[in-house]
Amino acid sequence: MVESVREKEIIENITKNFKVDVGIQRERRIWVKSPSEDLIDLCMFVKNKLGFKHLSALSVTDWPKKGEYELTYHIWSYDDKILITIKTMVDRENPEIETVSKIWGESSQIHEREMHELFGVKFKGNPDLSPLFLEDWDGPAPFRKDFDWREYVRNEYYSKDNDRESAYFGRD
């Protein structure tokens, strides 16, 4: 693994200003674990001081055993050609976090809107969290681990009497 100088510089810069866990995953990949209160400050710092301008993706991972959602922000720097992954944990039952849409603009707004719909995370301060994909859905957030869509589809749409659909019952 080649560790370039710039990656170490970025890590030093972050640890100087924030009390967070940092590490290099591989070439061009840095991860930072931050408590959710520091997230906005860290994101401001990463964008304005370190030049990470492109929010590539925002993802949520559901960890029901820990009772937490893990939010991962993947941010790319066009100048340094490095991807930084900021991770933060929020409570699973009442997921709430400050929005980053003031920092990265509309691109982060739309990512947050998607995650709100699929995982039910509330992004405080996001101007528009209306559903994107699912029309008239009022059940649980569909991408949570405890929502078994196969069970749901079997109950709602399939019939055991239909020969071609009965194959889906009793198989994982």
Binding site: L132, L134, P142, F143
Partner: peptide, 15 residues
């Protein structure tokens, strides 16, 4: 107004 083709691949891949 997207959503005419949502198939939930991200969730489907977990299975």
């Amino acid at each position: 107004d997207p959503g005419y083709l949502h198939r939930g691949f991200e969730k489907l891949m977990e299975y």
